[in-house]
């Protein structure tokens, strides 16, 4: 019997090296351990042995079977490897560049806007919005800018014809519609639609009838801020704006409030910053935003009692902030849509 087992084992070992496919493997298995396989026949033959002979024969058979299994397992692993290799095809060169489209990018003004909004959200400001086509009343009258004020000069503002009717900016009377010159109009819309206390920031596009040059653009973007509550003070104004400046320009940035004039705030200030990290604009005072306490006339225009409520407001130019943060020297880059510019801020 041992010789029979040895020959079965030898047959398996000889065949194993030749086997390339799963079918050949299955055929070998059938020859050895199939219903008529040589090992199967040997095992059947054990039934003819005496009781005394069986344990030794069983041991021999098991040992052989174990060896056979090992051979078959090795072959099976090799066949499986070959099958997978055929499935996978040639190996890849990971140093090749991806053929897919290049990564996209957010516009630097979008990034700047979101960064600024995130800063004010931390301080409990929520985002509000208003239309770009606005009524004269919301843009000027309600903001204490009467009809003969220089800011309402036709020279500086784009107006729409009398025939223009906007579903988003309904006239109060027969006033003109215009392209808003600042996002301060959203202050008015917010105070008219919500009850104080309120804290909002309003990002948006604004328009001025300016010739385009390195610092002027036919449209530009502002973020307006408004906080109306009981007892809002100049100290609160500094608190909010110092926080904004330090979040945007780093903790080394210093601020100062420089007295100025806006019809809708009293007192009014420009906030200047000075920072060591602004390239060639480092270490000098730079104007970054206008701010002040909301003029009582604005509160009254919006139906709020100015003896009960007080507020602070500020407006900053997105382009201005983005230019300072990124060292951009010409506002026209923002609207030129040259990908060599846009991809720098991806």
């Amino acid at each position: 019997m041992q010789s029979q087992l040895d020959s079965a084992l030898k047959e398996a070992a000889d065949a194993a090296g030749q086997i390339r496919t799963r079918a050949e493997l299955e055929a070998l298995k059938a020859r050895l351990v199939g219903p008529n396989g040589s090992l199967t026949l040997i095992m059947r033959g054990m039934a003819t042995l005496s009781k005394e002979e069986r344990p030794a024969a069983g041991k021999m058979v098991n040992a052989t079977k174990a060896q056979l299994d090992e051979i078959l397992a090795t072959v099976s692993a090799r066949v499986e490897q070959a099958e997978l290799a055929a499935l996978l095809g040639p190996t890849v060169d990971p140093s090749l560049a991806s053929p897919d489209v290049a990564p996209g990018s957010l516009h630097p003004l979008t990034r700047t806007r979101e960064r600024i909004l995130a800063t004010f959200r931390k301080l409990g400001f929520v985002i509000a919005e208003g239309p770009e086509v606005e009524t004269e009343w919301h843009c000027f009258d309600a903001l204490n800018t009467p009809a003969d004020h220089p800011a309402r000069d036709m020279q500086d503002t784009f107006y729409l014809p009398k025939s223009f009717r906007s579903i988003d900016a309904l006239r109060k009377g027969d006033e003109d519609l215009l392209l808003r010159t600042h996002t301060s109009s959203v202050q008015v819309r917010t105070m008219l639609s919500r009850k104080p206390p309120l804290r909002i920031v309003a990002p948006g596009r604004c328009f001025r009838r300016d010739a385009v040059d390195a610092t002027h653009s036919a449209n530009f973007h502002q973020v307006e801020g408004l906080w109306v509550d009981r007892h809002v003070t100049l100290a609160d104004l500094r608190g909010v704006l110092d926080f904004f400046v330090k979040e945007t320009f780093g903790p080394e940035a210093e601020t100062r409030l420089r007295p100025s004039f806006f019809p809708f705030t009293e007192p009014s200030f420009e906030m200047d910053i000075r920072s060591p990290n602004l390239g060639r604009l480092s270490d000098r005072w730079l104007e970054v935003l206008g701010c002040g306490l909301v003029d009582p006339k604005v509160l009254e225009s919006c139906g709020l009692d100015a003896t009960e409520w007080s507020g602070l407001a500020f407006g900053l130019g997105l382009e201005r902030i983005a230019m300072l943060v990124h060292g951009i020297d010409d506002i026209r880059h923002f609207y030129a849509n040259d990908l060599r510019f846009l991809r720098q801020f991806a």
């Binding site: 206390p197 100290a235 500094r238 909010v240 100062r256 409030l257 009293e266 007192p267």
Partner: peptide, 25 residues
């Protein structure tokens, strides 16, 4: 309110303290 502006303009805006922002509403 106009007198407040005059006062702080001449007294100096550096005298305005930095307030602590309130918690969100």
């Amino acid at each position: 309110i106009d007198l407040v502006e005059e006062y702080i303009r001449i007294h100096g805006t550096a005298q305005v303290p930095v307030g602590r922002p309130l918690a969100p509403l």
